[in-house]
Simulated assay, not measured.
Amino acid sequence: MPTTYLITGAARGLGKGLVAAYLAQANNVVVAAVRNPDDENSKSLQSLPRAPTTSLVIVKIDSNSTTDAAEAVAVLETQYNITALDVVIANAAISQKFPRVENVTAVDILNHYRVNVVGVILLFQAVLPLLQRSDKIPKFIAMSSETGTIGNQEKFEIPNGVYGPTKASLNWIMKKIHLEHINIVAFPAHPG
């Protein structure tokens, strides 16, 4: 059986690198979730080299949307006959501002939480039934950051009143998912 991966934020950066790495391995189905499938970065995923027994599926998941993740799962099941996922990597995130806490605006922090935390929760809720159908040990991984640390904030001298708190919250959510779902391996990963 092939291993089926779903990776959000797949059009560029780490997400695109992960898609490329899994496409290069034999016997994989790689689902690349992108904000806009018609964007040139998204279309360029089709030209990535791939092993002969590996396939690529591109779906729309904008982490700002409250419905995209569930709609993408429906598309996977109905149009592509993908009824199980083995590994989901919640890579999509935003990091747009680095203010001191005294300068954080409600709009900025809410926008970052919506994508970096709520988007991951909605993704997990949407993919949970497919992870539970995996014939392997299913994994749900979220890209975090060492800037989300609580105990070692002194190591990071840059102002980080918006992005850091969202990653700290994400780390908590990932631990809770792991504890609540004993048959799913769930953890945050710091890519650096």
Rank of each mutant, 00 (worst) to 15 (best):
Y113T: 12
A93N: 00
V75N: 03
L76P: 04
E71P: 04
N41G: 01
S95C: 08
I89G: 07
L76I: 05
P99C: 09
L45S: 06
T53C: 02
T66C: 11
V75Y: 15
D86V: 14
T53M: 03
R100D: 06
Q79Y: 03
T54S: 15
K60Y: 14
E40D: 11
I109A: 00
P99K: 08
E71A: 15
V104Y: 06
A90K: 11
S42K: 03
D62I: 05
A69Y: 07
D68Y: 02
P52G: 14
I94E: 09
L45N: 03
T54Q: 04
A72F: 10
V57L: 08
A90G: 13
V57E: 02
Q46D: 00
V87Y: 06
L85G: 00
L110P: 05
T66M: 12
A74Q: 07
V107A: 14
K43W: 01
R100L: 12
N81R: 15
D39K: 07
I89C: 01
K43N: 01
N64K: 10
Q79G: 04
T78E: 15
A93I: 00
A70I: 13
V75H: 14
N41L: 05
T78I: 05
N91S: 11
L56A: 02
V101K: 03
L45M: 12
F98S: 04
L45C: 12
D86R: 10
V57R: 00
S95Q: 12
E77F: 08
R50P: 08
I94T: 14
K60P: 11
K60L: 05
D62V: 04
T53E: 02
A84W: 03
N111D: 13
D62N: 14
A93Q: 08
D86I: 06
I61M: 12
A90L: 10
E77T: 14
T53R: 01
A70Y: 02
I89W: 03
R50S: 15
T78D: 15
D108S: 15
L85I: 10
T67Y: 07
R100Q: 08
V101Q: 08
A92G: 05
N41T: 07
R100M: 07
L48R: 09
L76N: 02
V88P: 01
T53G: 02
T67C: 06
A90E: 13
H112R: 03
A72L: 09
N91C: 09
I61V: 13
A51E: 02
R100K: 06
Q79I: 03
A84P: 06
T53L: 00
S42W: 02
V73M: 14
Q79W: 03
I94F: 10
T67S: 15
A74P: 06
K97C: 07
E77G: 13
Y113H: 13
A74Y: 02
P99H: 07
D39L: 11
Y113Q: 14
N81C: 08
K97S: 13
L76V: 06
A84N: 10
A93G: 11
D68Q: 11
H112V: 09
A90V: 04
L110Y: 13
P52A: 15
E71R: 13
S44M: 08
A51F: 08
V101H: 01
I109P: 00
A90D: 13
T54D: 03
N64D: 08
S95K: 05
